[in-house]
C-alpha cells in the first residue's frame, strides 16, 4: 500500500463526497486518477455515476447466443456421434423439441457465465492487492482521493478536500 502515492479524504456525507469529487476535478486531476470508494452504492448521488457505462448486457446476449449455438451443436453431435444411428422411440436422430430444450438451457448458461466473467473483469475484481484502501469505509465513510498526485499539488489538494467537507485527510506513500 505504501508504495503508491495518494491523498484521500474520508467523508461522512455523500453530498460532501460529491463536492469533493468536483473539487478534485476543478484542481485539474485527471479522471482516471480520482478514486471513490463507499460501502453502499449511494444511488442518486452524482459520484455513483462515475464509470457508469457498460456493454455488459450486450456481452451477456452475445454469450447467450454462443452458449445456445454450443447447446444445439452438442445436442446434434451427441446424437449422430455413434457410427450406427441410435434410434429411440421412432424419433428422428436430432429430435427438434429435446434439442430446443438443451439449446435453451445452454443459452441461459452462456449468458450467466458471460455476465459473471464480465463483472469480474470490468469491475476489476479478483485483484486482492488493491493499491488504495481504507477500512474506515466499512464504518460508513466515503473515500474520495487522488492516485499518484504530484508532491507539489499536495497542500492544494488537501485544502480542496477539506473545504469540500472531508472529515479526515490521509496520505500514503512518499509525498
Amino acid at each position: 500500500m505504501a508504495s503508491v502515492n495518494s491523498i484521500y479524504g474520508l467523508f461522512a456525507d455523500p453530498d460532501a463526497a460529491d463536492r469533493g469529487v468536483n473539487a478534485l476535478r476543478h484542481a485539474g486531476v485527471a479522471q482516471d486518477q480520482i478514486v471513490v470508494m463507499s460501502s453502499e452504492p449511494h444511488e442518486g448521488h452524482a459520484f455513483s455515476l462515475l464509470d457508469h457505462k457498460t456493454i455488459m448486457p450486450w456481452l451477456a446476449a452475445l454469450g447467450g447466443v454462443v452458449g445456445g449455438a454450443c447447446g444445439f451443436l452438442l445436442a446434434r453431435y451427441t446424437q449422430v456421434a455413434y457410427p450406427e444411428p441410435l434410434i429411440t422411440g421412432g424419433m428422428p436422430l436430432v429430435a427438434p423439441f429435446p434439442s430446443a430444450i438443451v439449446t435453451y438451457e445452454l443459452t441461459m448458461m452462456g449468458a450467466v457465465i458471460t455476465t459473471v466473467v464480465t463483472l469480474l473483469i470490468t469491475a476489476r475484481l479478483l485483484k486482492w492487492k488493491q493499491p488504495l484502501y481504507d477500512s474506515e469505509i466499512s464504518y460508513g465513510k466515503i473515500l474520495v482521493g487522488v492516485l499518484g498526485p504530484s508532491g507539489a499539488a499536495r497542500t492544494d489538494l488537501e485544502n480542496r478536500l477539506r473545504s469540500a467537507g472531508a472529515e479526515k485527510i490521509k496520505t500514503t506513500g512518499q509525498l
Partner: peptide, 8 residues
C-alpha cells in the same frame, strides 16, 4: 466499493 464496482 468503487462506483465502477457498484454499477457493474
Amino acid at each position: 466499493g468503487t462506483p465502477r464496482q457498484w454499477s457493474r
